[in-house]
Design a protein around this nucleic acid. Structure first.
Lengths: 209, 209
DNA sequence: TTGCCCATGTAATCAGTTACATGATTCG
DNA sequence: CGAATCATGTAACTGATTACATGGGCAA
């Protein structure tokens, strides 16, 4: 995932300042893009300018100075080449899912905390979905046919997420279920391992005390 | 997204070596987890051991030496505390979506390349979905009720992805559509900006040549 | 006149990867 | 007997964040 090319893509979409780029990544992307900081953007912009991929137009509009960047011919070519090249498959960093895989080992009986986690995720997803739904008619963002396809993806993903959350909460409010599969008795061993670790720790404390 | 805690979660799931942890992240996670390298894992394990969160049992089984790590009492407590704490909302780094938002600016007429991108993504998603579907009955992985909920999420996400890809390809094979929304004429300005950049570049070449 | 948004930038630091170095075991 | 897999580790580097430093415009 190339930050430089993502910046070129944003500038290709519209000429903008470093400040604008950060907003484009944060607000407009509505979590579609990932976060990005100023400390990262400005040095990149300088580098891209040095390489002749972008060009700054310094303005003094209203006394406030700013640099509006646009693509050069070289920048357009580079952007096109990147767009034609194959893309990395998106990687998911989902802390909640990681927790769920080991939930049975650490907090097997605590279903209510997991429900609370799902509920707070639901709130955030609903908020994002609301934004995404209004996006195509906000009278502000430029959205092409292709951009609309990307928005459709976001929307479908969020709707699926919400459906899954509701189903999961409903199940967690019901009776605990046995493991789906546990061929090497890993799951039944987890409470034993945990207890052993705590017993050992208590014993050591006693020995030292 | 804490790497240390994710490692504790994997070890809580089952005692394992540094090598195992990498596999757990890569193969078993099937792209659920993100990538992680040895150069990152081993120093972390050492640090976690120094902090007393994990303990190594050095074995010489079959002449081949390895360190099997398990959680200490402190490690279990730390894992539980992390699990109870709130989680970061998952961030998506989807190169293809970034490209699609600026596709109209850089390659407005080239629908076939975008279709090819979607098709290669479809192949990968189908492969992952196949893996995820077989996972709960592979007779190998331990899957609790909670783990199954996480797997359901992955599955739903991939199915939604595939549905979106098919719909998008179908639309791209049809007639080009006008922008959904373009309040400041950004989209209609893009070809102009692009042409201007190339004209300027050609002019400079002529001047120098 | 205070606080928020606009706007740019640097320096220290951190997290993680890549490349390198090593060596045993297992399977075809 | 060679290739793939199992297994551990370090050093150099890269990419990014955080914290800091600066300052104008605008609205309550």
């Amino acid at each position: 995932m190339s930050l430089d090319h993502s910046i070129l893509a944003v500038i290709g979409y519209r000429p903008c300042t470093g400040y604008d780029i950060k907003n484009e990544f944060e607000h407009k992307g509505a979590g579609l893009y990932w976060g990005i900081s100023f400390g990262s953007i400005y040095p990149r912009l300088r580098k891209l300018e040095e390489e002749g991929l972008i060009e700054a137009q310094e303005t003094e509009s209203g006394g406030r100075q700013k640099k509006i960047y646009d693509l050069t011919a070289k920048g357009w070519s580079e952007l096109e080449a990147w767009m034609r090249s194959s893309s990395e498959y998106p990687s998911v960093k989902d802390e909640l899912l990681v927790k769920m895989f080991s939930w049975i080992a650490a907090l097997p009986e605590d279903r209510s905390t997991l429900i609370r986690h799902l509920e707070s995720r639901k709130a955030k997803s609903e908020e994002l979905l609301d934004y995404v739904k209004k996006w195509p008619s906000n009278n502000f963002s430029s959205i092409s046919e292709y951009g609309m396809l990307a928005i459709n993806h976001l929307r479908a993903r969020l709707e699926t997420d919400l459906k899954w959350i509701d189903e999961s909460i409903r199940q967690l409010e019901g009776e605990p279920q046995p493991p789906v599969q546990d061929p090497f008795d890993l799951i039944s061993q987890q409470p034993v391992r945990r207890k052993t670790a705590f017993n050992k720790s208590n014993q050591e404390e006693k020995d030292n005390g």
